[in-house]
């Protein structure tokens, strides 16, 4: 039971990270109807920028951890957001009203570019960082000596996710930008006729998605203590799986899907085999889609005849 509780905590933390990335996928899908294959790499870039900022700050002799974290978070969000904007500008905007497969391939190409760019720029080797945030709480001490722990870093990941989610929900539901985004999602032509700047709104969607991915990248760095140029691919696929599982286009769905994928992966590793954790996650995706073809919270597609 204690073991299970511990795995549950670990799974939820991992799921939070996936959920943050998944929101980026689901937003972009909702508004332009394309799979942004480069989004996983945006997450990876976010991790790298967080790492570099952290290194620079430490080398300047900064010691106040909360201040460091805040600066790292802001810098990483800002620069990664610009990456998101640039990718949209270069690779997707020219293909906005094109054939459906063209933007998808352009996105795959962009993903290759970003992966290799960071490989070339920062080298192929894994970058480890020493644990930045240590300590934690012992929640329960089991009879067998097994201890259920909640580390500070886990608390930070979950709190950050919840705060960002709240902020983001407010943004989409109560601001002008959010309204424009929802309008573009429904009908771009009509939205533009009513004075919504569609290009800007779509750009902002990419910017916000990338900023959230940057947060996920930083959390990943803090939690696992390493980044490498290839981490975007697997995390990207998992997060996209999460978005689809939750029902693509649905924001709560993306978070729910992220948590589920995180839990499945962690529990499968804990009880069955670590090697097949991804197989388990993907298999569950397939099974869910067979029974719920539009995911858990997705709107069923009504076929107009």
């Amino acid at each position: 039971m204690d073991y299970f509780a511990q795995q549950l905590i670990n799974g939820l933390v991992l799921g939070s990270i996936y959920g943050l990335i998944a929101i980026g996928y689901t937003m972009v899908y909702g508004i332009v109807g394309m799979i942004n294959f480069a989004h996983g790499d945006i997450f990876m870039i976010g991790g790298f920028i967080a790492l570099i900022t952290f290194l620079i700050l430490v080398s300047f002799g900064l010691t106040a951890i909360p201040l460091i974290l805040l600066v790292v978070l802001l810098v990483s969000m800002a620069i990664t957001a610009l990456y998101g904007w640039t990718v949209e500008r270069i690779a997707y905007r020219p293909l906005r009203h094109s054939f459906r497969l063209a933007p998808m391939l352009s996105a795959i190409g962009m993903s290759f570019v970003l992966t290799n760019y960071s490989q070339v720029a920062q080298g192929a080797r894994v970058k480890p960082v020493p644990p930045i945030i240590t300590g934690g709480y012992t929640l329960h001490e089991g009879s067998g000596g097994f201890v259920v722990q909640l580390s500070n870093i886990q608390i930070i990941v979950v709190i950050t996710t919840v705060v960002l989610l709240a902020l983001f929900t407010w943004l989409v539901s109560s601001t002008r930008l959010g309204r424009d985004m929802r309008a573009c999602e429904q009908d771009q032509t009509m939205a533009s006729l009513l004075g919504v700047d569609v290009d800007r709104t779509i750009s902002m969607t990419f910017v916000i998605g990338a900023a959230l991915a940057a947060v996920a990248g930083m959390m990943y760095l803090l939690y696992y203590g390493l980044v490498d140029f290839f981490m975007g691919f697997v995390a990207g696929i998992k997060a996209f799986t999460a978005a689809v599982l939750g029902g693509i286009g649905s924001l709560p769905g993306a978070m729910l899907g992220g948590l589920l994928i995180g839990l499945i992966e962690t529990l499968w590793s804990a009880y069955f085999s670590v090697e097949y954790k991804d197989v388990a996650a993907f298999s569950i995706l397939i099974v869910v889609l067979i029974f719920l073809p539009t995911g858990l919270l997705g709107r069923p597609e009504v076929e107009k005849v």
């Binding site: 690779a91 933007p103 190409g109 962009m110 290759f112 570019v113 290799n116 490989q119 070339v120």
Partner: peptide, 16 residues
């Protein structure tokens, strides 16, 4: 090592 970089860019440009 720049090969995939060029390849990815080529994919984007060809699609555009």
């Amino acid at each position: 090592q720049y090969r995939m970089l060029v390849f990815g860019m080529a994919m984007v440009l060809l699609m555009i």
